[in-house]
Structures are given as structure tokens and as C-alpha cells.
């Protein structure tokens, strides 16, 4: 097995919102191997972005990481000070955000924002050298006339180009791990495909491990090796990418998959939706948090009273870890 790039253990993050405590990330553990690409999928508000910020130590008050170990390249970074973390962020672990129109400072040039990503870790670099490196990075993300366009401002770039710049900033120091939080959601479909292809090529060349946060299962199937389904702040099902599409075991994963438009099922009528709403993260049910919406456990006392532990199951398309009381039973049904 490849060496581990990142290992997260029992990570929990809460937001104190005056009176109620919102549990955004609840006891999440996972391993990311070198060059692995993990897709984290889930609805809005399931804690995906909070997870990304927690790993980077960028949770701002009133939020805070209450527990957890984040081992990056053999070192636990969860207990580091802000100054120490500064040397890790952008250097060993980098971030790409969703909305390219707000991810760049509107009053600073593109060049200065790329240069900043380099000089913060290597303050002694000469200006000319940094500028050359910044231009190289722009070329690497397929922006033509890179040298000249360094002096442009973000509003002179299109959305797709801005996202390329964001990627250039993220890969500037050749990080071990790249966290991309919905990197293509704000882009139109053609641009999405281009940006994804670019990301694909770069992480391949640089042998970067990726955590791709998305709600788009199509992107997961194209891009990722493994997938974690997130619900109400927890990873409810973790597996290789094939398993989730062949034998989704958690009822939530199954429901999520049914919501993906599929030409073969067009005749079956309108696209199904998952009934109900995600739970209020400040008042979580005591049992399984999906129970109130779950087609399997909605009426079962066990599901409402007892929180499920992760079950390791082995299905037709590989192993999975599933937080459901009925995981074994369900995988047997699929396998038959």
C-alpha cells in the first residue's frame, strides 16, 4: 500500500451560535494515500466545507475544532499554532474554493496574488525569479500570454480563467494534499470539463493527493478513486469509487444515487428526490441522523434510538465502511 499523505482521526467541529451548538463535523476519520483522489459528497449543509476548513485549521470563530488528529506527512498538525500552521498551509496542503469570482482579491493583480503564494514560504526569492515562476504557473494552467496577463486584475479574467488562477495558486508550492471545495460548481458545463481536465492532469503530474468536495456524483465517478458520503457531519459510507455506483449500501447513498439523472431511467417518470430535510445540526436525533428520512429505518425503534457504528462490508465492487444497522443485510441483498 502507498504511503499515507493525510490521516484524519475523530475530527469534530462545532459552531457556537449563542445558545445552540451546531455540530458541523462529527467524529470524522479517514486516510488519504499518496496520489489518492477522495470524493466527499453530500447535500448542502452536510459539513463538507467545514471539514475542508477544519483540516486546514481555518475555522473562524464562532466555530472551533473540538477534537481530532490531523496527521499530514507523518506530523500531527492539529495542535500547531497559527504561525506554525502558516508554514504548512499552501506549502504542504492547499485549497481551491468554489466561487472563482470571490476567491481572488479584486484590487490586487493576478501576478501579485500568485507571487504571494510563493514568497510567503520562500521570502528570500528574488523578484525576477518569483515573477518568472508565477508566469510559469499561469502557463501551466493554460493561460496564454502569461507574462503579460500577470499584471491584469481579476475582473479582466473570465470565471474559468479565475478558477485556473486559483488552481495555479494552490499548486504553486507543489503540495502533498489539495483540497478542492466544489471547484467547478460555479462554472458552466464546458468550462467545468476543462477545469476538471486541468486538475486531473496537474495532480497526476505532481502526484498530489486530492480531496474533492462536490455534490455532483458524475464528477466523482470521472475523477475520484474513492468516495465518502457525508451526512449531517459524518462519513456514513466510505469506499472505493466503484462500490458506491454498483452497490450503494447506506440508504442515504442509495437515495443520493437515485437523484442523479440517468437517460435509461427517463421513462420511469420524474427524478426522485430525498423526502424531508437534513437534520438541524444543533438538535441531532439520538439515533441514526438519517432515520427520520430513511426508507428502511423510518419506523424502526432501533434506528431512532441507537446510533449505528461503522460496519465493514464486502460487496461485488469492493469493500466499504457503512454506518447503518442493516449494512450486512443490505449488502447481501445487493450481492444476490
Amino acid at each position: 500500500m502507498d504511503e499515507l499523505a493525510l490521516s484524519v482521526r475523530n475530527l469534530s467541529t462545532v459552531y457556537d451560535t449563542g445558545g445552540s451548538v451546531v455540530h458541523a463535523v462529527r467524529d470524522v476519520s479517514f486516510d488519504l494515500r499518496r496520489t489518492e483522489r477522495l470524493g466527499v459528497v453530500g447535500e448542502s449543509g452536510s459539513g463538507k466545507s467545514a471539514l475542508a476548513l477544519s483540516i486546514l485549521g481555518l475555522i473562524e470563530p464562532p466555530g472551533r475544532v473540538v477534537e481530532g488528529e490531523i496527521v499530514l506527512g507523518g506530523r500531527d498538525i492539529s495542535k500547531l499554532s497559527d504561525r506554525q500552521l502558516g508554514a504548512v498551509r499552501g506549502k504542504e496542503i492547499a485549497l481551491v474554493l468554489q466561487d472563482p469570482s470571490s476567491a481572488l482579491d479584486p484590487v490586487k493583480t493576478i501576478g501579485s496574488q500568485i507571487v504571494e503564494a510563493l514568497t510567503v514560504h520562500e521570502p528570500d526569492l528574488r523578484r525576477a525569479a518569483v515573477r518568472r515562476r508565477a508566469a510559469e504557473l499561469l502557463r501551466e494552467v493554460d493561460i496564454s500570454q502569461a507574462e503579460r496577463r500577470l499584471d491584469d486584475y481579476p475582473h479582466q479574467y473570465s470565471g474559468g480563467m479565475r478558477q485556473r488562477v486559483a488552481i495555479a495558486i494552490a499548486i504553486a508550492n507543489n503540495p502533498r494534499v489539495l483540497i478542492a471545495d466544489e471547484p467547478t460548481t460555479a462554472l458552466d458545463v464546458t468550462t467545468q470539463a476543462q477545469v476538471l481536465a486541468l486538475l486531473d492532469r496537474l495532480v497526476d503530474e505532481h502526484r498530489t493527493a486530492v480531496i474533492l468536495i462536490t455534490h455532483n456524483l458524475g464528477i466523482v465517478s470521472d475523477f475520484c478513486d474513492s468516495v465518502a458520503v457525508m451526512y449531517a457531519g459524518r462519513f456514513v459510507e466510505t469506499s472505493g469509487v466503484d462500490h458506491i455506483f454498483v452497490a450503494p449500501t447506506h440508504p442515504y447513498s442509495e437515495a443520493l444515487l437515485k437523484c442523479v439523472p440517468n437517460p435509461e431511467r427517463l421513462a420511469e417518470g420524474p427524478l426522485p428526490a430525498i423526502s424531508g430535510f437534513p437534520p438541524d445540526l444543533s438538535q441531532l436525533p439520538s439515533g441514526c441522523s438519517f432515520a427520520p428520512r430513511c426508507p428502511v429505518g423510518r419506523d424502526l425503534p432501533q434506528c431512532h434510538e441507537q446510533a449505528p457504528v461503522p460496519h465493514r462490508v464486502s460487496g461485488p465492487a469492493g469493500e466499504a465502511s457503512v454506518e447503518c444497522h442493516f449494512a450486512e443485510q443490505r449488502i447481501r441483498e445487493v450481492a444476490v
Binding site: 485549497l95 474554493l97 468554489q98 482579491d105 504571494e116 510567503v120 514560504h121
Partner: peptide, 19 residues
Amino acid sequence: PFITVARGKGLRRWTAFRR
């Protein structure tokens, strides 16, 4: 988000804020 991005580059809190 560009403040988060700036922090993500490794900028200290105050530096990101000031710049």
C-alpha cells in the same frame, strides 16, 4: 473567500487581513 484563500496560501492572520 479571498481572505480564506490568502490564509490558505500560508499568510498569517494579520497579514491576510492587512493586505
